[in-house]
Design a protein around this nucleic acid. Structure first.
Lengths: 223, 223
DNA sequence: CGCGGCATCCACCGATCGGTTGAGCACGGA
DNA sequence: TCCGTGCTCAACCGATCGGTGGATGCCGCG
């Protein structure tokens, strides 16, 4: 957690702005440029470009519109959060607030969701908060979110252990309550192999049994 | 949505403050009293009294602490929201921010969740927002909430099988990855008893093994 | 080019789990 | 009072699980 120095100015927040409308984009960029402690390092006109820029520039934050060509904002968010693994966080800034859109963005791993209608100070404050590791939600978004509350997994797990594709596949079957012989048959491998994969999963997840492995993986957002 | 007239002052926000600590309560009341447009119409020292006052006075808002005798804040919130049906909304104001507490309060129907550590202006703004029909969440709360939304189902599972207290207790230990003998020792019962409870859980949840039982219980919001 | 690291694969063994049958005790509503 | 429900326990068996050891093939590093 000692990643960023809270001293603004000494180390500006590096931002990539992703929005397909040039006018909107320039407006946002203009707002951010005039703000000390925030530096716009790149602009993307679609989701694919946003992902590319995120990987290339490793910004602190991507300001993401949802409605974009080629790759929509939610999908782009997912890739950035998943791939980078780095410190890049995504703040969704959009006009829409449909339940589906919000959910998709949140599930994709966005650290915040603000509306373009929000006052400029709120947007700037949101950027600083998200860059500092917090989560920001517009009030109307919070309301919708609340109605969805149930259970889930973790946000940005500091060190989510990386399971191999095979290990993850096996673990998913375990979460469905399948037995090792069953899993072995569906994956066309030996039962012993399934066990070995699970042993490795246990080690990576630092647990001792399959049940705990599943709950732990859920906590870490791996399932 | 056209319930309240946004004109402040003409029609003050009527508030009931519920907190078992007199000092804390008087502090809150003092803060609110000095604020134009907000009127404290009642004070409650426990959850039961909060419910009674809410029904009797029909305030716009109840400022609710969670940790209270007789009836805790979450339970009180549930009754107020359910019973009244009226326009009374509940804003939770507490020191704690455990996942369980937050979840319980939100699920009980609270319209907001703020921490006592928040600056006074934030609390006042929160009261106005909630009274206006919005939902407010402290940033740290928003983060926890967001983490729950990943693959979140609807609110109340249609037919969540009712597990007995003991069955639920055993299942929770299973979710923590404990073995049957371990659970037996912690609960001071025989291993055979643990098994029996689990068998019953399996039947009620319509699953065949402990791992699936845990994931199923999570899906149903039982854990 | 040899070496280690990684993911994938497999076999055996003791411990645990899931399922069964059968039973006693306390509590509260019919 | 009787009956249902929840909680408790015992003994047994087959299936599965977790642990250990060892094998193969692919990759990058020196």
């Amino acid at each position: 957690m000692t990643l960023h120095d809270p001293q603004a100015g000494a180390r500006p927040i590096r931002v990539v702005v992703a929005d397909d409308h040039p006018i909107v984009r320039s407006g946002i960029v203009g707002l951010l440029e005039s703000e000390p402690g925030i530096e716009v390092v790149g602009e993307a006109v679609d989701g694919a470009e946003a992902v590319a820029l995120a990987v290339e520039l490793r910004p602190d934050l991507v300001l993401m519109d949802l409605r974009m060509p080629v790759l929509d904002g939610a999908a782009a968010t997912e890739r950035i959060v998943a791939d980078a693994g780095s410190g890049t966080r995504v703040l969704v800034l959009t006009t829409y607030e449909t339940d589906d859109h919000i959910l998709a963005a949140i599930e994709a791993g966005a650290s915040g969701y603000l509306l373009k209608a929000a006052p400029q100070e709120e947007i700037l404050a949101g950027i600083r908060s998200v860059a500092a590791g917090e989560t920001v939600l517009a009030p109307s978004i919070a309301a919708k979110l609340v109605s969805r509350v149930r259970h889930g997994s973790a946000t940005a797990g500091p060190a989510a252990p990386s399971l191999s594709p095979r290990e993850l596949e096996v673990l998913r079957h375990v979460a469905d309550g399948r037995s090792n012989p069953e899993i072995a048959r569906t994956l066309h491998i030996g039962e012993a192999t399934v066990k070995t994969h699970l042993i490795h999963v246990f080690e990576k997840l630092e647990v001792g049994d399959r049940t705990r492995a599943v709950t732990r993986a859920m906590e870490l957002g791996l399932l």
